[in-house]
């Protein structure tokens, strides 16, 4: 009889345990994002400057700046068009260089994109086959990274177009 009661207790408590775990699981977002994978160091990579095609090492970028903001964009990506004015605004109000990474794009299209909307970037690097974006840990366009330029660690990631709120957050992080 005691044995039976222990059994009942065990079964009931494990059932309730499973119930609550699943209940908590329901409230989790089931869409995966990499937004939380930060504080990782970006290893050095080589790329080419967009206009001049000069070879550039990532570690040598903006040596006098404490922070850089890296923005992955492409002329064929519609959200990039949408975030463009925010990027321009961000660049004007921040003590950091804005680095563009032109993702899998045709040079001509990208150039006309910039001449149409303006060029907010201090430097643009080319990522012709998408490998640099993988190196950084991006999986789509646009994505924006706030990077500590001294130790090359990612401080904050923004997937998708940045908005006013993001700009404020970046500013406060840089001013700290």
């Amino acid at each position: 009889m005691v044995n039976k009661k222990i059994k009942l207790f065990l079964i009931l408590s494990s059932t309730i345990f499973i119930f609550f775990t699943l209940y908590l699981g329901l409230n989790k977002n089931n869409y995966y994002t990499t937004e939380n994978i930060v504080y990782k160091k970006i290893e050095n990579f080589e790329s080419y400057e967009f206009f001049s095609n000069k070879k550039i090492n990532f570690k040598n970028i903006s040596p006098d700046k404490k922070y850089i903001i890296l923005n992955i964009w492409s002329s064929w990506c519609l959200p990039c068009r949408k975030e463009h004015k925010n990027l321009t605004e961000l660049r004007e109000n921040i003590e950091a260089d804005l680095i563009g990474l032109n993702y899998k794009d045709k040079f001509e299209n990208a150039k006309s994109f910039l001449s149409e909307l303006g060029n907010p970037y201090d430097i643009i690097l080319k990522d012709e086959n998408g490998l640099i974006s993988i190196e950084i840990g991006a999986y789509g366009v646009p994505e924006t990274y706030l990077i500590n330029n001294i130790n090359k660690k990612i401080i904050k990631k923004y997937l998708g177009p940045i908005n006013e709120e993001n700009i404020k957050e970046i500013q406060s992080l840089v001013n700290q």
Binding site: Y103, K104, N129, G130, L131, S133, I134, Y139, G140
Partner: peptide
């Protein structure tokens, strides 16, 4: 997708 194509390039590399 572009992402998948890039990853495949990366695997080759």
């Amino acid at each position: 997708s572009e992402f998948a194509l890039s990853i495949r390039d990366l695997i080759i590399k």
